[in-house]
Design a protein around this nucleic acid. Structure first.
Lengths: 113, 113
DNA sequence: CCGAACAAGTAGCGTAGCTACACATGAAGG
DNA sequence: CCTTCATGTGTAGCTACGCTACTTGTTCGG
């Protein structure tokens, strides 16, 4: 799918994958790809800046660790991040309903309840 | 709702409102507001450029008319626009499902069918 | 006469995802 | 041994696109 359609919803996705457990950037990319059956194959240039945004916003916290001589930055959800995720979920549902009202089949304005 | 989340889906919305009949720009804005119960209150600076994009793309065609001394540009869906709308609908459903898989409650990866 | 609603439009801004690149290490293979 | 690939992180610059703010012009009501 056209990945650029994510605009504005990427943060929510990132928070959602981190909800299930802390992950490092590379693993997040793989998790998104796996959970979406390959639909979401996001480049590093999208993920890393997004994670830094989320960290600046206080929604995630990162810790460095070294695994097999490779530096890893592992991100975990903060309490604020969990709250933000709840908000993102609500926003997503509203967005989904609003757009769906135009794009989903059935129930154009004339249709009675 | 945060209107900027529309990113990438606005074209689909415009095509969808025009599907029900030709409208001029101002009326499109009002139609979007009405059909979304006020959630979508888009400024002219968003709509008019978007309509020109759609016209350049051949998805809509416009005709000028004068009503009560006021110039109106009325937009109607072209055949290509109708096809584009079908594609946008498909894309929307895929997008909705993909994002929903992360943001909707229930059915995290482990859950069996 | 003046302001509000109607109607169209542009210029410039900001956000945010994308492309393309750079850098480093470890494992695998010729 | 040396190259190549997977792992892992990161930045610079581009572009798309919606938003803010403004402009122009008409009709109508107070």
């Amino acid at each position: 799918m056209k990945a650029q359609a994510l605009h504005g919803h990427l943060d929510a996705l990132l928070l959602a994958v981190l909800e299930q457990g802390a992950l490092h950037g590379y693993a997040i990319i793989e998790a998104l790809r796996a959970r979406s059956d390959g639909s979401l194959d996001l480049p590093t240039g999208t993920i890393y800046p997004a994670l830094r945004r989320l960290e600046r916003a206080g929604h995630v916290a990162s810790t460095w660790s070294t695994v097999n001589g490779r530096e890893r930055r592992t991100y975990q959800l903060t309490d604020a991040g969990r709250r933000a995720l709840a908000g993102e979920r609500a926003g997503w549902h509203e967005f989904q309903q609003t757009v769906g009202r135009f794009l989903d089949p059935g129930s154009p304005p004339g249709t009675p309840a």
